[in-house]
């Protein structure tokens, strides 16, 4: 990958982040209902409201505040929570790690499960196995992740006692036990995605198998499996990686929701309470951070794909 390409991609990322942060900031400026009412209650005097507005910086023009907010955010300062007597970054610190850990485990599960399974399904030529994979995949894809989470809690937690729902330990306290607990919510997020990724990989393998270079590979005496692994796989993985990157956003969203099912105190739960409390500095910060994660994942996937497919390096 050339330097020019990287610079271009990075510029695009920055532009995306500017747009996202702008909207995140804008959204909470145009809403009815002043946060001061929430903090002081509806019976506050006009003077105390004005004083609080000045203290929170709400009395200055919009663009000044946006610019100030974004420059502070770049230094890791997202302002102070309206509700908790803490800075937003303090509030986020531990929770962000938890959510990122959960997302990473889920992502890893998707890659580790779907690519070998997709390959196995493509290697096996029995129409019955093929059909079974299709039907099973169709079914799994239709189950909402949080419902899988509920089922896992019920089955593995309450019936089989493999884990104790509701006893999540922060990774900072006991990393091992934390990860073990997170395996279940990660599985809930991963399962439907595994089915989707498998479907994607199978169809792209199917498309690649009809290409001319496959015939060439056969003509050199390669077996079907050798052709599949040595020639087709790398070609077929490229669109699959792009697909995985596209779903990165949904995986992050999945983590946010699944935290509620498994009572994990991560960024998702914080987001929910902040939305209920109209604690906008926190919501803004979470929005921007999650978007940044998604954008970074996309960037990494782009680089990975350029390593896999040399033709992409030209563009």
């Amino acid at each position: 990958m050339t330097m020019k390409n990287i610079v271009k991609k990075v510029l695009m990322m920055i532009l995306t982040m500017v747009i996202v942060s702008f909207f995140a900031f804008l959204a909470f400026q145009i809403i009815p209902g002043d946060p001061t009412t929430k903090i002081l209650g509806s019976e506050a005097t006009a003077e105390s409201v004005a004083a609080l507005r000045a203290e929170l910086g709400l009395d200055r023009p919009f663009f000044v505040r946006y610019f100030e907010w974004i420059t502070n955010a770049l230094q890791g300062d997202f302002g102070r929570s309206y509700i908790y007597n803490m800075s937003v970054s303090e509030l986020l610190q531990g929770k962000l790690c938890v959510t990122m850990l959960l997302t990473a485990i889920a992502f890893l599960m998707i890659v580790v499960l779907s690519i070998p399974l997709g390959l196995a399904a493509a290697s096996c030529r029995s129409p019955w196995v093929d059909r079974a994979f299709t039907v099973l995949g169709q079914l799994v894809m239709a189950v909402p992740p949080f419902f899988i989470g509920i089922l896992l809690t019920l089955l593995c937690g309450l019936v089989l006692h493999w884990f104790d729902p509701g006893t999540f330990i922060s990774p900072a306290d006991d990393f091992g036990r934390s990860v073990v607990y997170l395996l279940y919510p990660a599985l809930a997020i991963a399962l439907p995605r595994v089915a989707m990724t498998m479907k994607m990989l199978r169809s792209s393998i199917g498309g690649e198998m009809n290409k001319d270079y496959v015939r060439t590979a056969y003509s050199r005496g390669n077996t079907r499996l050798a052709t599949l692994y040595r020639h087709v796989l790398r070609n077929a993985v490229v669109p699959t990686v792009a697909f995985l990157a596209m779903t990165a956003a949904d995986i992050v969203a999945g983590s946010v929701i699944i935290e509620q099912v498994f009572a994990i105190s991560g960024i998702g739960r914080l987001l929910l309470t902040s939305i209920s409390n109209r604690d906008f500095p926190v919501v803004q910060a979470i929005v921007v951070i999650l978007a940044l994660v998604v954008v970074l994942v996309n960037f990494l996937a782009d680089i990975l794909n350029q390593r896999l497919d040399p033709r992409l390096r030209l563009q």
Binding site: T16, A249, V252, A253, V256, L271, I275, V287
Partner: peptide, 13 residues
């Protein structure tokens, strides 16, 4: 930029 952000989270906001 908006699709970099999941539908559900957008709706939450």
């Amino acid at each position: 930029a908006l699709t970099a952000f999941p539908n559900i989270l957008l709706a939450l906001v």
